[in-house]
Design a protein around this nucleic acid. Structure first.
Lengths: 210, 210
DNA sequence: ATGTGTGAAGTGCTTCACAGCG
DNA sequence: CGCTGTGAAGCACTTCACACAT
């Protein structure tokens, strides 16, 4: 069966919840109770998990430690991913220092910027800002696997191409531009302006129903 | 017909593209050419627009200035939305100064934080950090309509409830927690960790196909 | 008794394909 | 002829409901 992106995203949510449960000392949990915590349908959870194996125990549920381990492996979080951030503006700097990324799974190695005035600086957590030109070299030396694009829209496609040529094969794009990934590169977009405008849209159409 | 969230989000994308086109002096554009720019299907664009009226001219396409105006109105961007940011950490501060929000449609009025050490400070763009307790008062005085939640997961539900009680009816949540919106509040989530982990997942499953 | 795994039904989104208008 | 607007088909995701395992 083909695993959809939505399924993979929910696995991340499940994993996060399982880590909470493990910290609370919970040993096992049913899809029903997990669904309650996450405000999802329990069949959805069972189907998502069943894509990758039979992790549950009938009459019991899922063992937290076991499932946590399985999901960590499935999501590729059993090894550390080395991340570059391209664009050292407000957003790039903040993302570099953002504590919300599963800190075991990801390590922000460097920021890159084409503005010489920014190069040489460091974030509060001491991540260095490197010149754009050294991206290919550093990418290979440091084994960077993921890039986060936080550049202006006009520079985004160029930056993406550069990143692709440097051998980085996965990119998270924050620039508000419709980009074409180079062959072999996985591209995901997060468009903050669209999300905010979506709220404006809902506000102008009256308030949420039940 | 019920308008889906996905449609509304695409309208934002269309609007942004139309603003570019207007700046370039383009007078009219067909759904085909718009689709080419945005890497979408042209029928999708026509269907999305048809939800709200017959804006096109057969044999010609859509007049850029006219459609731009219509979409601005539909999305509720013909008036300015006053925005609060809750949580003055890395992310909250960066979002407050982020230039990517359609600057005519949104105005970030204040940040709020429960940490007294942060209160009284200002962002680089001079937006003040206020104490959490004054949120209800400032929300009403300043007519705040939207809140952005950039607090830790553990504090998010509490912050959301507070924001709801202050009369704010639309919230964009960055905290990695499954929240329940108070009645009448529209809630959208952006989960940065999930997006990044999704890339890790794709990397661990081999490279993107055609 | 409890709760998984799953075929089948239900729902919603996308794409096709074409009538009809300018 | 070019292009919109749209019914119908196609596809994908979600939910139901139940056989079956413990």
């Amino acid at each position: 069966m083909g695993i959809s992106d939505l399924t993979a995203q929910r696995l991340s949510v499940y994993l996060r919840c399982l880590e909470d449960l493990a910290r609370s000392g919970v040993r096992s949990i049913s899809s029903q109770r997990l669904a309650g915590r996450l405000h999802l349908n329990s069949a959805q959870i069972r189907k998502d998990l069943a894509c990758f194996g039979e992790f549950g125990v009938r009459g019991v549920g899922y063992y937290v430690a076991d499932l946590r381990e399985q999901l960590t492996r499935i999501l590729g979080l059993d090894r550390c991913h080395r991340v570059a951030i391209v664009g050292a503006g407000n957003l790039g700097m903040a993302l570099a220092d953002y504590g919300g990324f599963n800190s075991e799974g990801f390590s922000i190695v460097a920021l890159f910027d084409s503005d010489p005035a920014k190069v040489g600086g460091r974030t509060r957590r001491d991540i260095p800002v490197e010149p754009m030109e050294s991206l290919p070299e550093i990418a290979r030396r440091e084994h960077l696997g993921i890039a986060i694009l936080a550049v202006p829209a006009a520079a985004a496609q160029h930056a993406l191409d550069l990143v692709g040529r440097a051998g980085i094969r996965a990119v998270l794009n924050f620039a508000p531009a419709p980009l074409v990934p180079p062959p072999g590169v996985i591209l995901k977009g997060v468009d903050l302006a669209v999300q905010l405008e979506n709220l404006a849209y809902h506000l102008s159409r009256g308030v949420a129903g039940p």
